[in-house]
């Protein structure tokens, strides 16, 4: 199992993804954003950070990096791609996932442990989780306020593309448990096929108990199990 971690100028969670993957017993190597091929990887990760300083708009410039054509091709072939935080924003900007990201309603950056509820266990990233399960992952962002127009929103709900929602201790997706104002408390969405996931919480920061929790490992393990099972969508 080998993760390919795309490094954009300004990515800063790239090394953390590698650390978490290795701690879980998987391989992980970096892919420089100027690369035009992404061969030899089982899953691509677009990590968190501030690609191109998030200047102009978060992830607006990164989506034009040369590597993105190869990422799109990799995804189109049915293999798993996960965008975390800034990586999620890149996938939105690139049109690989529906919606857009606004500033948090507090207008402040927010870094804390956050409960999220699993909505769909049918994706490659959630095989080892069950619908309704509440897990805790760190969030750290200033622009994680998920937005889509009502038509798009209805469509992704209908197709079961909402993978995670912000929630409280008992799994309720309440306004109080919504850290950033996201519509429908949405914390993560996937494409229609299910092999491209974007999520604001950071699974790589919760890969080991010593860092405060290991729920994030379940997501890495899910992809690994799916890949080892020969999984490919489409």
């Amino acid at each position: 199992m080998k993760f390919g971690v795309v490094v954009f100028p300004g990515s800063n969670c790239d090394r953390d993804v590698q650390t978490a993957a290795r701690a879980a017993g998987y391989e992980a190597d970096f892919i420089w954003h100027a690369a035009t091929a992404v061969d030899g990887f089982d899953c691509l990760v677009l990590p968190g950070g501030f690609s191109y300083g998030d200047y102009l708009r978060t992830a607006a410039i990164a989506r034009f990096s040369p590597v993105m054509a190869a990422v799109a091709e990799f995804a189109a072939s049915g293999r798993p791609v996960i965008g975390i935080c800034n990586g999620f924003q890149v996938l939105l900007e690139a049109g690989m996932l529906p919606g857009a990201m606004l500033k948090n309603t507090s207008c402040r950056f927010l870094c804390k442990a956050q409960r999220i509820r699993v909505e769909s266990a049918r994706t490659p990233f959630t095989l080892k989780l069950r619908p309704g399960q509440v897990i805790t992952l760190p969030i750290a962002h200033g622009e994680g306020n998920y937005y889509a127009d009502s038509e798009t929103l209805a469509q992704i709900e209908r197709h079961g593309q909402v993978v995670f929602r912000y929630c409280n201790e008992s799994g309720g997706a309440t306004p109080e448990s919504n850290p950033n104002g996201s519509l429908g408390n949405i914390a993560g969405v996937c494409n229609e096929a299910g092999n491209v996931l974007g999520m604001m919480p950071h699974p790589e920061r919760a890969g080991e108990q010593i860092l405060g929790g290991a729920d994030g490992r379940l997501i890495l393990d899910s992809v690994a199990q799916w890949v080892q099972g020969g999984g490919r969508i489409g």
Binding site: L56, A60, I61, F64, E93, G99, A100, Y147, A148
Partner: peptide, 8 residues
């Protein structure tokens, strides 16, 4: 293409 994100 770049300067605005027409989703929002």
């Amino acid at each position: 293409r770049l300067l605005a994100n027409t989703v929002m």
